[in-house]
Design a binder for these strands. Structure first.
Lengths: 261, 261
DNA sequence: GCTACTTTCGCGCTCTGT
DNA sequence: ACAGAGCGCGAAAGTAGC
């Protein structure tokens, strides 16, 4: 439990960026999600470039590395260390009160009082707010909903959780085909929905299976087609390359490194 | 629905994992890469592509030049190992450069988006990384695991996703009683057999369906990859052609690196 | 118990898409 | 404007060694 400093609440250890004077943005201590701090475009590019060059840009240039090649230069630029950030946790704010844009700031309060773990009574434990438990409740609601159709906003409200969490659940249930989106904000339970669910073998299922099989067939055909296309592309590339070679044109190869991979 | 792929601007460079050498025995390499893009299990496709380009033009290059053939570049990208990086939060230095949470680069949408499937460049689409799809794949793995026991690290590695995502799935599946924790890092599938809360016979869970769904998902991902490859092949072909025409050698290479950023 | 590390995973920022 | 969802930080819970 000795966890990081500040036991107790402190929620999101929002990183407060220490902006050097002169820099833009509002004066208030910007609270960023680290994600945005590190945000750094080009990471993909960086990776591929690095790989192509056999460099390993672990994070900064290796000492003594001489960046001479154009690639190295680029790498340098791309790899430029991201911003300076202090990341100090303002002791002040610490307890919420701030942030959380709009939305139902459902802060589950971790009482800051008890420094240790006296589990305060009304305190919600991690388990209480776990996705697993929530899933149980959610499915319970879903099953009781007439028609098996449930409104996500209602559910979120009823269960007292952020909508975001509901999505976590619906996404996997959908992946498992236990539910399906019916319309905006509405999903439907497909546990052999209405009418005598007891039916040993849901007829609707066979339909689905058939559909799926044809989907697979379709996709496979498509794949073959694409494969062929690639083959021809490759051939063309090859002949062009060879031709270029004969003419003694030294390609650095760099030109193929464009943007989006 | 796959649609759009955004360029990965943000994508924090992967992070995580420091793991000092020496530690950890089998604890997987914990590479949480995000963009590892195509390092996927589509081995067959990958291999065939690799084979297709049986040519190597290394021979005609200027000595010392590591020029990879364009195709090789692609292959490289596809095979690109996950980038493992440090993400050290240097409190010091670091000049800015990043920041401005503002929407800096507004996602440039592939302008020439065809009405339908604009199919973006080598990038994973949002759909490709969706929880729903991941769930399908995960369940697929789970079913095939002997004893129905699956190691989460293996799964995360295999599916090339952060472990965090796996937890999202296991948590809800557990809530539904489809799986149960067996031990640290191991969960077990509790097939359709028992429970499933009140649902008599969970049809949606039929093995075949889930399998089919994951097949479809796989094929779709493959298709996306192939599409992307074609796009990039085409671009390369185009640039090569133009180059040849202009005969502007040598290249600094740098000039070709622009656009997209 | 306590320190140190690993596994789980709550949580909400922020980007996507319509 | 807003529904939807990717994504990763860091805290909580669990382990191992002291």
């Amino acid at each position: 439990m000795p966890r990081g400093a500040t036991p107790g609440n402190r929620k999101i250890c929002t990183a407060i960026i220490k902006r050097e004077p002169g820099t833009e943005l509002q004066s208030s201590p910007q609270i960023y999600n680290l994600t945005s701090i590190y945000r750094q475009p080009l990471s993909d590019t960086k990776d591929s470039i690095a790989n192509l060059q056999g460099f390993k840009l672990e994070g900064g240039l290796t000492p003594g590395e001489t960046c001479l090649s154009p690639i190295a230069d680029i790498k340098h630029i791309i790899n430029r260390p991201q911003a300076k950030r202090k990341l100090e946790l303002e002791p002040e704010i610490i307890n919420e009160g701030f942030k959380t844009p709009g939305k139902t700031c459902k802060r589950r309060r971790t009482s800051e009082a008890s420094p240790k773990t006296p589990r305060s009574p009304l305190e919600k434990t991690r388990y209480d707010t776990s996705l697993g438990l929530l899933t149980k409740k959610f499915v319970g609601l879903l099953k009781n909903a007439r028609e098996g159709v449930l409104d996500l906003n209602k559910a979120a409200e009823h269960l007292e959780v952020q909508k975001r969490r509901i999505y976590d659940i619906t996404n996997v249930l959908e992946g498992i085909n236990l539910i399906s989106k019916k319309s905006k904000n509405n999903i439907q339970w497909k546990g052999c929905t209405n009418s005598i669910a007891a039916n040993p073998d849901c007829p609707a299922l066979s339909t689905e299976i058939v559909d799926l099989h044809s989907d697979v067939a379709d996709l496979e055909a498509k794949e073959n087609m694409l494969d062929d296309l690639i083959v021809s592309c490759t051939k063309q590339l090859k002949s062009m390359t060879e031709e270029a070679d004969n003419k003694k044109y030294p390609f650095s190869g760099l030109q193929y490194l464009k943007q989006d991979y």
